[in-house]
Design a protein around this nucleic acid. Sequence first.
DNA 1: GAAAAATATGGTAGCGCTACCAAATAACCC
DNA 2: GGGTTATTTGGTAGCGCTACCATATTTTTC
Lengths: 348, 348
Amino acid sequence: MAIDKAGVRERRRHRGDNRVTIEDVAKQAGVAPITVSRALNTPEKVSARLRERIDQAVETLGYVPNLIAGGLASAGTRVIPVVVPSLSILTFIEVIHGIQQTLEAAGYQVLLGSSDFDLDRESALLDSVLGYSPSGVILTGLRHHESTVRRLKAWGRPVVEIMELGDASIDMNVGVDNAEVGACMALHLLERGYRRIAFLGTGMARDYRARQRYEGHRRVLLEAGVESELLFQQDEPSSYEVGRQLFLEALEARPDLEALHFANDNLAAGAILEANRRGMRVPEDIAIGGYLGLSLGEHLTPRLTTVTVPRFEMGVEAAKLLLARLEGRSPALPRVDIGYELTVREST
Amino acid sequence: MAIDKAGVRERRRHRGDNRVTIEDVAKQAGVAPITVSRALNTPEKVSARLRERIDQAVETLGYVPNLIAGGLASAGTRVIPVVVPSLSILTFIEVIHGIQQTLEAAGYQVLLGSSDFDLDRESALLDSVLGYSPSGVILTGLRHHESTVRRLKAWGRPVVEIMELGDASIDMNVGVDNAEVGACMALHLLERGYRRIAFLGTGMARDYRARQRYEGHRRVLLEAGVESELLFQQDEPSSYEVGRQLFLEALEARPDLEALHFANDNLAAGAILEANRRGMRVPEDIAIGGYLGLSLGEHLTPRLTTVTVPRFEMGVEAAKLLLARLEGRSPALPRVDIGYELTVREST
DNA sequence: GAAAAATATGGTAGCGCTACCAAATAACCC
DNA sequence: GGGTTATTTGGTAGCGCTACCATATTTTTC
């Protein structure tokens, strides 16, 4: 029973970095460890006198709280995993930027994961990442493995699904209606008087949101009684180069095309740049529309007509929803339509 | 002494999510918890028979290890914080991509932080992030607060500094010599016969690596006996728009300019696009050079001459260095010059 | 076949912190 | 002033896991 406490003290810290612990601070300030904990986490519950003494001890010792230990004790770390399909697509980057900026300001850290458009990888990633007892999770899209959905629902912490809008969400949802976006551009092209309109995309086998945009596009053309099966696609990730190739491919296959509806601005920009190079006139020879609202679009000649989606704001909104939930302010609307805007410029 | 164990068992899990724990798995498999731990972390130390039984128990119960608890016990989590100055700059994104891909494949997670080019924020970020007992850290540049350097050195875990090359590094270092890069482009412009050469940058007050490039540029011009104080700058983050503005500003202020050396490809692209719009001929009217090697450069007309830095590879290399150190394979060279390449195209 | 060495499993004791409750102190009430 | 209520501090007991050492089991050695 009478274990030699001092002896134990000597032997401790046998592993790990021998960092300053809360106990050291407590000793220095002449209080109990729990009081130090309180002074740091809920300062209003500690008298000003002690708070000051503790702050000073923290300062002198250079104490940095071990968030792992805190996380274990209180079953939660201020970490928010964000799972996106790809880090090489600008869209997601800007969303991440918005998320990161908002969460970091609130004292949360973003844990980055990319699923490569693969639901198995998404599930595996969540497995490992949930092991860190995060405060919440942000993931992309509304389609996940059934087991993923079940697990996250049972988990009971805030989850935000972004990029896509719908009511089948796990918890909270911020996004746009992709079909509507595709329809919007198709409608615009029709209104401009174009009839021979092709949709050009890439990686659509994996990226179902691009497919949704195509479906919206197709629906509008069908309703207008216009040939709608003009679809050109590749399988690589979006790039200017793929846009260029799709452009040339479409022109070759159907020289009678009047307008090209690209799945995103990267592709559309690649097309316009190639048109520039060849001295083709846009939109006189061929009209070009995109999706996203990349800043490059407005610097091209002609400037790119596109459907702009506020990606940064989408990230901010997702983070805010999460924070609101975490801070007990349960948001009125767990579903936010971030909207889109048809930005008509000279390319159509 | 004789505490009612069962009673304790009932009362436990009073906080946190009542997840399946290693103890549950152990019970299910009829072994001790420590054996389960071993089966998961060092399977080769457990007999095939037990391993199988344990794997099965893990499967049936849907056990997900609590990495927080594991991290606390073994003083380290498989997390690598990556601190970059900004998430809105493409350069860093690609580096992050390389880092993330490599680390994730090795079972590590990236914790994202952005310092906004501010060393105070960098230091604060590290404070909070080191609280997660990460396995290592990747940060940007070789310049940090003295206290940051001291703390990280004392920390004793792998640190990689990226983007800049030098021997004043905390631990390991992967990057390029920015001054040399700047000199390289300046030299190229001189060789092409240009003499009235301006350097155009933005945010250089904060981004000292851009300043280093300028210094390299300046040195070369000085040595060649050419006017070298032609510097135009703005304060916003890099963008096509700022490139456009700098371009117009420079033309206005010095109509006699022959070549423009931009601090990066975003700016340079903005300039070429504006030249396109105005019908100016590049390089006949004015030559334009950049830095980075953005893919956009080769789709412009004329295609952009630039100094290409393998950013994705830099990230991969940084991650590999870190992993090597973590796996005990201490790398022979803790300092990697990732190199650069002068990509000569039509814009000069 | 006994002794030595190698391998496989288990017991114990924390990692550093905070939830929970108890105790001490201060503030308030009639 | 005694009693009640709020406020401040502290003690204890884990959070779920793994390092460390001890013990059991198997394999090897002569």
